[in-house]
Design a protein around this nucleic acid. Structure first.
Lengths: 219, 219
DNA sequence: TCAAAAGTGTTCGTTATACACCCATGT
DNA sequence: ACATGGGTGTATAACGAACACTTTTGA
């Protein structure tokens, strides 16, 4: 089957930057490409948009196909369309991003992906296409969104915490997302002022040091 | 000549929201479509991206072809790709926006455009495709960008002022761009703090009322 | 003298930032 | 006793928002 047009058409893809926190560090979900170009290179997941699906829907589908990850709320980052960004043909990509919990997530590489793995944002491999640029843009946007206001993005930060958590644990999560250390007292003021924390009147135990108070959060 | 692909490809367009101030009100540059679909409807200028040009370059080219407007710095707004947004075939558009002075600008409708005119943002005609949505997004972004920091977008606001201007004139420009009235004293504090105003030690004359001090701005 | 626009400061609330010491526990 | 992380308050600066009266001119 082939498709013919009177004028040349670019291909359009969606690429998705999926961030998570694992082992206390910010990770991004990458796939290893199974096919050329950039065969065997790592890349952010993505693929061609179908003719009858919305951009965000196509992005979600490609994400699930290549990595097994589904049900994440994607936010559009923008379009990337340098003429030579794909050596095959003209490909314009629309980039999306999301922040998700990943503890119970099972990665399942399929379709164009030989493998799907979480990479530490500080130890990225060489990336296919212009994905390093896209990912850098996404990283910057993530840091902006997490602490400024009580947005959906900020809410999702709490997914990296157990239901009962200490303030030190919460601080570590926000530091990881923001990419810089935060002042302990200022952080505690901020979280108390901006979120509905419930003091559970419980303390951690078994630690080597002073027990910490446990909290939960109501949205 | 025709172009054949193994898989279906969408068409990709760039659409451009060009804002200006004319007669003291915020205007947007629209074209009247010469061809179907939406023949005779008004639309924001735009058209198909060529295979070897960058998105922003294509947007600038389409803008010039259809309206005669050139040399404007475009900022990407995002991609719009609902499957049915174009009745002909699947068309994904990348929207751009800019704020430009228009006093000496000569509009020259050509190519797909029967006409090119400035429309008052408060009196828009029915627009083709999903252009009403795109334009509303652009309008919101414009208001955000103009007053918050000393950005390029904010700089361009001064292009709507004569070289020697009064603070009341400047306030009127910023109010138009922001879409809401500003407090006189707060505005004067803000403009003095954020811009390098030069007090020209001159006053307006010929007005019916108290003369106003004239300023110019250095960047 | 009146109408109309020009000009001018202070207060308050919120937010971000900086910063140092004592406390409770396990070893 | 000591090492380790838990826990706490105050001061300052910057910013945005609210707000009313006097001055100067032409008609």
């Amino acid at each position: 089957m082939s498709y013919t047009y009177e004028y040349p058409h670019p291909a359009v893809t969606a690429d998705i930057c999926i961030f998570s926190i694992r082992e206390g560090t910010l990770k991004v979900l990458l796939i290893q490409r199974l096919i050329d170009p950039f065969k065997d290179s790592w890349a952010i997941p993505g693929g061609f948009i179908k003719m009858d699906e919305d951009l965000a829907v196509g992005a979600a589908r490609e994400l699930e196909e290549e990595t097994g990850v589904s049900g994440v709320p994607l936010e559009q980052l923008g379009a990337y369309g340098a003429p030579d960004r794909d050596p095959r043909e003209r490909v314009i990509t629309v980039a999306f991003m999301a922040l998700v919990p990943s503890d119970q997530m099972v990665l399942a590489a399929a379709t164009d992906a030989a493998d799907a793995q979480w990479f530490d944002m500080d130890e990225l491999p060489a990336l296919a296409f212009d994905h390093a640029t896209i990912l850098a843009d996404a990283r910057a946007r993530l840091a902006d969104k997490v602490t400024n206001r009580v947005t959906e993005t900020a809410k999702s930060a709490f997914q990296f915490l157990p239901q009962k958590f200490t303030l030190a644990q919460a601080q570590a999560v926000f530091e990881t997302l923001k990419g810089e250390p935060l002042d302990k007292r200022n952080f505690r003021k901020w979280i108390a002022a901006n979120w509905d924390l419930v003091d559970l009147k419980e303390k951690t135990s078994g630690g080597r040091h002073r027990p910490a108070a446990l909290y939960s959060v109501d949205f």
